[in-house]
Amino acid sequence: MKTLLTYLIIGTVFVVIETLLPQMPFGKPNLLLLLVLTLGLKEKVSLGGPASWLLGCLQDSLAGSTLGLFGLVYLILYLCLRSVAGHLNSESPALLLFLILAGTLLQGMVLIFTLGFLAEHGTYWRQIVAALPGQLAVNLLAALIFLQTSSWLRSHARHFGRKGGLS
């Protein structure tokens, strides 16, 4: 429960950041996708499934017009990744970049399918396809920053831990 709450708090922070970013020509970075991919690599279905669905719903509350759309999309993404996570080296930083590429493409496909076949309006697919290259670039950039920040935080945590141990 504590882990789920932590993911939701981080998700809330990410989604608020996304709303505060202005509309850019290449699209906004999808920070929640990073979180869903992390869930897919690290967390079991009992936690990761509800967490990814809730994260999607969180995004739906501040984007689009239908609650549950991103919930469904993120859940599908999570389940796809979870099904192959056992064969992947989750410690490799390059893996996250590859997953971002694959995740963005898969997200676009699932969105097109969901909006085109399940919703009454089907003209979003043009925008999704047109925005895909820009979205890929922005998401990759966000992933690189995420990796850099997390490695910096890890090294500093180790450094402070050592210092604390000495004193």
Binding site: E18, T19, L20, K28, A63, G64, S65, F70, L111, A131
Partner: peptide, 13 residues
């Protein structure tokens, strides 16, 4: 006070 959380949809708050 805010824009849509994604670049796909066009909503503002």
């Amino acid at each position: 006070i805010a824009a849509d959380a994604t670049s796909l949809f066009q909503t503002v708050i």
